[in-house]
Design a binder for these strands. Structure first.
Lengths: 231, 231
DNA sequence: TTCCGGAAAGGACATATGTCCTAAAGCCTT
DNA sequence: AAGGCTTTAGGACATATGTCCTTTCCGGAA
């Protein structure tokens, strides 16, 4: 990820209505960074000096164990925030962050934010809401993971991305690029994911054809997910 | 839980240095509640009108599934906060909350807090730090749960409560009252917990004598926990 | 002291999930 | 079209964990 002075932050500030958190005078202090698919954006242990707002693209936050296992904590799209908790708690980066697509971030230094926080209440309110929401969804996901088997979590995931009613099909549209990633997201092994998918096919809940997955029976899927929805 | 007008909130406010978040004028708006061991303090779905500060006693936050399984999300001791996320996000109570011992809470209405928030920045800073910390530890615990087997989580738990160095013994001192509760805390069944405990005994990591558990080999425990510590 | 219910301990068996491995299919690149 | 890499599929087996049940133990109520 690197600073990109050619890009003007203003369009993003308007698009995401950031004037509410960054007053006019603050905007010159905002830096624009661009990143490329696959970039490692942050690594655990790293010390952060800026907070970032994701305004374009998609990134994933994940945990790597010493043993090499990997677990996706969450995906972020605009307007995701990175470094908020580090800013508040003053600790170093906890998880790995990687770019899933090309994208753009706006950055503001902790130092500047400290001043902003003092003079501009809406900013801290924004932070508070951001963190509260992160806590809320983390907490939901955590319970879901602890209490239900992969099949249920997977059903829940499918529901969460099939927007609303129709037996939506998500082809390349699936939010995870491939099955390996999906496995890391649901928190299981590729092998097991495959097993569960197979079962869902034989239960006539989904259909699979060359890599694409289609929901066949939304009702059954709902039953299975049992009211649990990611996010 | 019920209001208790006989109790003066001031000693608590001093003990926990709450003047920093509640200015003098606000204190008359604080209500004192007392509760008794076993009380159900809050139930999921309930609408909250107040935020609570736990100033005495111990409570547990847990999730109950429709199937009747139960999972302890966390314990709280003073100065724990309940209802902060609900205040910020405006949603209803997410988890069940139950008193583990007798105790006391200070309450302030959301309505009053809204005013306070506007006039007294330290309060919102306090909230932000509280929520950030909750998120941080929830996130750690969640990864730990997803990535490691019960044995590791248990080792981690033992470490977290054995304060520091010495092969501390925790008898009735164990933060969970009994093995059933410990199982819910580690997120497993009683049966399996027992199995793992037995293994730890035969590995000479701990010793068991009539309900008490003693750490025998702190080094092995550390190896096992593998750098993971709750909280 | 006797009786009862809950907590502890663990056997037997079922299920969920992980690890290792092999084969086939798909897709680039040359 | 041929090779090589990644992704998909799934067999075989091992391990982690859950469910159900029985026995024993212990402290409090009668």
């Amino acid at each position: 990820m690197k600073e990109n002075k050619k890009i003007n932050p203003h369009p993003y500030i308007e698009r995401y209505d950031l004037e509410r958190i960054f007053p006019e005078e603050f905007i010159p202090k905002v830096t624009v960074y661009t990143f490329t698919k696959g970039d490692v954006l942050f690594a655990p242990g790293e010390t952060l000096n800026d907070m970032y707002l994701l305004v374009e693209g998609k990134i994933k936050i994940f945990t790597l164990t010493p043993e090499g296992k990997s677990l996706i904590n969450r995906f972020k799209r605009p307007l995701g925030v990175v470094g908020d908790v580090e800013y508040v708690k003053g600790n170093s980066v906890i998880n790995s962050v990687e770019a899933v697509s090309d994208g753009v971030m706006l950055a503001a230094s902790f130092e500047d934010l400290k001043v902003l926080e003092r003079n501009h209440p809406p900013f801290i309110r924004f932070l508070l809401e951001t963190v509260a929401h992160k806590f809320y969804s983390e907490s939901q996901a955590s319970s879901l993971h602890m209490l239900y088997p992969v099949e249920v979590r997977l059903a829940s995931y499918f529901l969460s991305i099939s927007s609303d009613g129709e037996g939506t099909l998500f082809h390349q549209e699936m939010r995870t690029a491939n099955l390996t990633e999906l496995a890391e997201w649901v928190g299981t092994s590729y092998r097991h994911l495959n097993r569960v998918l197979k079962k869902m096919v034989s239960d006539e809940i989904i259909e699979r054809a060359n890599g694409s997955i289609k929901i066949k029976d939304l009702e059954k899927l709902r039953d299975l997910a049992n009211g649990n929805i990611y996010e």
